[in-house]
Simulated assay, not measured.
Amino acid sequence: MNSKLYPNKRDRYRLEFLKEVIPDNSKILDLGEPNPFSEIMKKEGYTVENTKGEDLDEDFSSVQNSDAEVVTAFEVFEYSVAPFNILKEIKAKKIVLTVPLRLWFASVYRRKNNQRDRLYNEFEDWQFDWLLEKSGWEIKKTKKWANPALPSIAPRPLLRHLIPRYYAVYAERNP
Rank of each mutant, 00 (worst) to 15 (best):
K134T: 11
S107F: 04
F60E: 07
D30G: 12
R173N: 06
K4M: 13
I28M: 07
G32S: 09
R14N: 04
V21K: 08
A168K: 02
Y6R: 01
G45E: 04
T98M: 08
F74G: 01
W126D: 13
K93W: 04
A82S: 02
N174G: 12
L162T: 10
L97I: 15
E78K: 05
Y120N: 03
S3Q: 02
V71M: 05
L97S: 08
D11V: 15
W126Q: 12
Q64I: 14
R165E: 01
K42C: 10
L159E: 00
P148R: 01
L132V: 13
R110H: 15
I163V: 15
P148I: 12
P23D: 09
L131W: 03
V21T: 14
I153W: 00
S3V: 09
K4S: 15
E20S: 12
E133W: 11
S62P: 03
M1V: 13
E89H: 14
P23S: 11
Y46C: 05
I153Q: 11
W104G: 14
N25V: 07
F128K: 10
D117G: 06
A68I: 03
F37T: 04
Y109R: 06
L5N: 15
S152Y: 10
S38K: 10
R14P: 00
L18Q: 09
Y79R: 09
N121K: 06
L158R: 04
V76T: 09
Y79K: 03
E75H: 08
I139S: 07
I95M: 11
N50G: 11
L18G: 06
I22F: 03
T51V: 08
L150Q: 11
S135T: 01
P157R: 09
L162G: 12
A68K: 10
E49G: 00
D30C: 11
E16H: 13
R165M: 01
D117P: 07
L15N: 04
L15T: 03
V48T: 02
F84P: 01
W126I: 14
M41Y: 02
F17H: 08
E54W: 05
L132E: 08
A171N: 09
E138Q: 10
A149C: 10
D129M: 04
T51E: 07
S66D: 07
M1I: 10
D129G: 08
